[in-house]
């Protein structure tokens, strides 16, 4: 009984319920939801925001907020792409991932330093670095849509399987990049749950001063966190342009808002300390289904942005309400305990 209550006090089951209900609604209205190709399309659309959400969730758990990870992803992948193109590189795509991840790590280290060592407010710092990185990309590298090296094109064409919708004659291909998402999720899960570093991220989000006293190296943990987020963003960038087969510098900019909203929707506490990967992926799935299915349920594309805004507001509103009522319950609990004897 206690366990049942504990599960229902979390937000994952509610997000899952929302996904199921939404799916049934779309299925009922269009009959197209539970088809192989639609599901594969959804999975495909989930890869990039899913990858980004992992880092975003970790930052929010630590008590910060990051609005510049898309700028890192864009700049890192663009510089990598340019270097590889100019050097005429035709070898393995792993080098591209390593380079872009490395650039991302450096870019993350810069604001990690500002946040960890100078203790500057994360929102304003990342607004600043976001602008800095986008500016560098468009200014110093004069970025515009460009080709990608052959290895990336080949990488983008690696298909796990193909789903066909016999009725509409549509086929959808499951890209191999989904494996990167799965791998990164597994890595993040192990990191967060089974390493002291990961527990340190939660500890800092719970009480930074206590974490310091307990013996966590708070600065190094934060530094690691932002480096990790940067590297992950760089890797995400390569996955993105490989799947698109060309490097569009603006393709990921602006995505940060939906990712943050999805992470919060998935039950990550905005003030830090609580958050799960399951919830995060469920949140991303909900947002992706919404975004991809607007046409299926008959909402014109011009209104999609207003719709996203409404979802962010309603979603965060419900989460905020949940937190408020949870604190209310807690107060009751304390009361009965105090007055019990």
């Amino acid at each position: 009984m206690i366990t049942a209550r504990r599960i229902l006090a979390r937000s994952e089951p509610w997000v899952l319920a929302a996904i199921v209900m939404l799916s049934l609604l779309i299925q009922a209205r269009s009959g197209q939801f539970f088809t192989g190709n639609n599901l594969v399309d959804l999975a495909r659309a989930l890869i990039v925001p899913g990858l980004l959400s992992i880092g975003c969730m970790m930052v929010i758990v630590s008590g910060g907020i990051d609005v510049s990870f898309t700028a890192i992803a864009s700049l890192a992948m663009y510089v990598t792409d340019k270097i590889l193109l100019q050097s005429g590189y035709s070898g393995n795509v792993l080098l591209a991932y390593a380079m872009s991840g490395g650039f991302g790590l450096l870019l993350g280290a810069l604001y990690g330093f500002l946040i960890a060592f100078l203790r500057l407010p994360t929102l304003v710092v990342t607004l600043g670095t976001g602008s800095l990185y986008t500016g560098l990309m468009y200014g110093a590298f004069a970025a515009s849509a460009s080709d990608v090296p052959p290895s990336m094109i080949a990488h983008g064409k690696e298909i796990l399987f193909t789903a066909t919708n016999a009725k509409l004659g549509l086929t959808s291909e499951m890209p191999s990049q989904i494996l990167i998402l799965v791998g990164m999720l597994a890595l993040a899960f192990l990191l967060l749950r089974y390493t002291m570093l990961g527990r340190g991220i939660y500890a800092i989000g719970g009480d930074e001063a206590a974490a310091e006293r307990a013996g966590f190296n708070v600065r190094l943990i934060k530094m690691f966190l932002y480096c990790f987020v940067g590297a992950l963003a760089g890797i995400t960038g390569i996955s993105r342009i490989s799947m698109m087969a060309y490097a569009d510098p603006s393709t990921m900019l602006g995505m940060e808002l939906t990712v943050i909203a999805a992470v919060v929707l998935g039950g990550t506490r905005v003030t830090g300390g609580l958050g799960t990967l399951t919830g995060t992926i469920l949140g991303i799935a909900l947002m992706t289904i919404l975004a991809n299915s607007l046409i299926l349920i008959g909402i014109p594309t011009y209104w999609s942005r207003a719709f996203t805004g409404a979802v962010i507001i309603i979603g965060t509103g419900v989460t905020a309400r949940q937190i408020a009522s949870a604190t209310g319950r807690r107060r009751e609990l304390k009361k009965t305990k105090g007055g019990g004897a």
């Binding site: 089974y194 390493t195 002291m196 527990r199 939660y202 009480d207 206590a210 307990a214």
Partner: peptide, 27 residues
């Protein structure tokens, strides 16, 4: 303020300091 992590379980709060003292990298 007890130097306690409100967001973690009782178990972790009790064990984390020990584990950190022992310089453990894994939980």
């Amino acid at each position: 303020d007890f130097s306690i992590f409100p967001n973690l379980t009782v178990m972790e709060n009790l064990a984390l300091n020990m584990e950190l003292m022992d310089k453990r990298a894994f939980m």
